[in-house]
């Protein structure tokens, strides 16, 4: 395994802002099998006190997708895609997200280590809405197997 880019630990990537669209919330909710009308019907969502359709909790993967992919494709991190797997994931939610919100996410490299021939990378995302309130903090753990076949 090539040397670990441990000098990248602690690095924060530039903030990425994602505009939450009503149809994207509906598309995501349908793709994961959600049926609650709060995710689909703006009238039902407004009656419940939301400005527009409510994003499912796991919609966080949509607004964090670009920062996560930016890190995975960063040559400085030297990630070997052919041997990359998503090992673990953790999310802690703080504020609801609705269509019309603008979510700004900052991704930080938390750890890069090696154990038993495997490389472990841990990334943290902190996402905030347009009012500066934290919507979700995510911890993304990837595993890279040693690439014997090059």
């Amino acid at each position: 395994m090539p040397p670990l880019p441990t000098d990248q630990i602690g690095r924060a990537y530039p903030a990425d802002t994602y505009a939450v669209g009503r149809e994207k919330v509906r598309e995501y909710a349908a793709a994961v099998g959600e049926t609650n009308p709060l995710h689909f019907d703006p009238a039902v969502a407004r009656d419940a006190g939301y400005a527009d359709v409510l994003a499912p909790a796991m919609f966080v993967v949509v607004y964090c997708s670009r920062p996560f992919l930016t890190a995975l494709f960063d040559p400085e991190l030297a990630i070997d895609f052919a041997h990359l797997v998503h090992g673990a994931q953790e999310f802690r939610w703080a504020q609801p997200v609705v269509a019309g919100d603008e979510i700004t996410t900052i991704l930080t490299v938390r750890d890069i280590s090696e154990r038993a021939g495997l490389r472990f990378d841990t990334f943290e995302t902190v996402s905030r809405n347009q009012r500066g309130e934290t919507t979700c903090v995510g911890t993304w753990s990837t595993i890279i197997r040693a690439g014997e076949e090059g």
């Binding site: 709060l38 499912p56 994931q89 999310f91 609801p96």
Partner: peptide, 14 residues
């Protein structure tokens, strides 16, 4: 009970 905001945290291993 179905309230989408009930879920405060979720961790998982794949």
């Amino acid at each position: 009970g179905g309230d989408p905001l009930a879920l405060r945290a979720l961790s998982a291993q794949f």
